[in-house]
Amino acid sequence: MELTAADVPALVRGAEVLGSGGGGDARAGGVLVSRLLRGGAVDLLDPAAVDPDLLVAAVGMVGATVVFTEQLPGGGEFARALAAAERWTGLRAGALASIEAAGLNAATALVTALAGAGPDGALPVVDLDLCGRALPRLDQFSLAVAGSDITPLALALPGGQVVVVDGGDAVTTERSVRSVLAGGGGWAALAVAPRPVRELLEHALAGTTRRVLDVGRRLLALPDAPAPAALARAADGEVLAAGRVLEVVRHRGAGGGFGGGFGRGSLVVRDRGTSTLLRLEMENEYLLALADGDLVATTPDVLAVLDRRAARPVSCDRVRRGDDVVVLRLDAPAFWRDPARLCAVGPRAFGYDVDPVLVDPVSAAEAHP
């Protein structure tokens, strides 16, 4: 499958949905991809159909997404991070993947492929990633949760510095990377050292970019102000509420994530049809939903807040009182439903002392045939 400029709007819209209110501004990634494509294309490969020994490097952006969008990179930062990871290991990537097929990171593998394109064209991108949705921490990469190393990895900072992190467990690596970001401009391009597809098929999530594109195409095909049920069908999700945002509360630096440094907040939506009050708890992403006080949905299912008229997702940092929205729940990738992995991305991983409440994929499929 080839990705061209015509696919960018769908990539952006689907990435916004899978961002679950976070993951950074997917439009910024779309701008970079469109600028670099210039009529060209990038091959999107099915990981099950390629040489299992093909070496793949996962790339992406980490850090403060607001800073990133204020000063867009030229794209070379991702290529520098990849080159550093290759030099450190002596391994050359034959293809790329994204660390996170959501938010702006849904585009970073494409940006890296195009920015580093040589006489033979851009590197191909393998359709897999390390999150399957937006997640805030490196220790939540699927590689780490499945027991594999996430190092060595390389960071290319906006000021031109390149840092390689090697050794240590995933939590230590997360702490080290955040320290580098704090003193280096707030964000960095990241590249995880190349590893064979056979390992990634065991420890990563496949088909995620196609999911992003499919959701984006269906949403873009909707008419203006679609019915909530139509939005749910397009996104392969279910409606939790549709109505006005009555309240938005934010608390800086009070989150329960790694180090407690992420801001936390909540919003309340009154359903127009039932008058149910749906409360969403949020950190970097929307994490929990309570209907009239009863817990009805949690991470790792994707909670998406969409503007009712434009069918466009509204991020945690942009939602405002008075917004007319539809709140959807999309099922989590099967990878995260394994009880051995669920604890790493469920509510308790973010400091909420509640059990996960996940949608039944079979029931959702029956509700939206």
Rank of each mutant, 00 (worst) to 15 (best):
L278V: 13
E285D: 04
N284K: 07
M282Y: 09
N284Q: 12
Y286M: 01
G263I: 08
L288C: 05
V268K: 07
R264E: 15
N284M: 05
F262E: 15
V245S: 13
S266Q: 13
E283V: 08
G273P: 02
R279P: 00
A242S: 15
D271I: 09
M282T: 07
G255L: 04
E281P: 00
R279D: 02
M282R: 12
F258I: 13
L287E: 08
L280C: 05
G273Q: 14
R244Q: 11
G260P: 05
A241S: 12
L288A: 01
V296D: 06
V249G: 02
L267E: 02
A241F: 06
A289Y: 06
H251A: 13
V245F: 11
L288E: 04
F262G: 06
L287D: 03
D292W: 02
A289Q: 07
L280T: 07
L277V: 09
A241D: 08
R272N: 07
V249R: 13
L287G: 06
F258M: 11
R279M: 10
G257S: 08
F258K: 09
G263W: 14
D271H: 13
L288D: 00
R270N: 01
V245M: 12
L290F: 13
R272M: 01
G253N: 13
G243F: 01
L287M: 09
V269T: 09
R272W: 06
G255R: 12
R270T: 10
A242Q: 10
L246W: 01
A242P: 06
G257Y: 03
H251Y: 10
R244V: 06
R270W: 01
G253V: 02
F258A: 14
G265A: 09
Y286V: 04
G259F: 05
V268W: 02
D292L: 05
R272V: 06
R250Y: 11
F258S: 10
S275L: 08
R279L: 12
L246S: 07
G259K: 12
G260I: 13
D292V: 03
R264T: 15
L278I: 10
R244A: 14
A241G: 07
T276S: 06
Y286F: 15
R252N: 05
G256H: 03
L288H: 01
L246E: 15
V245A: 11
F262A: 15
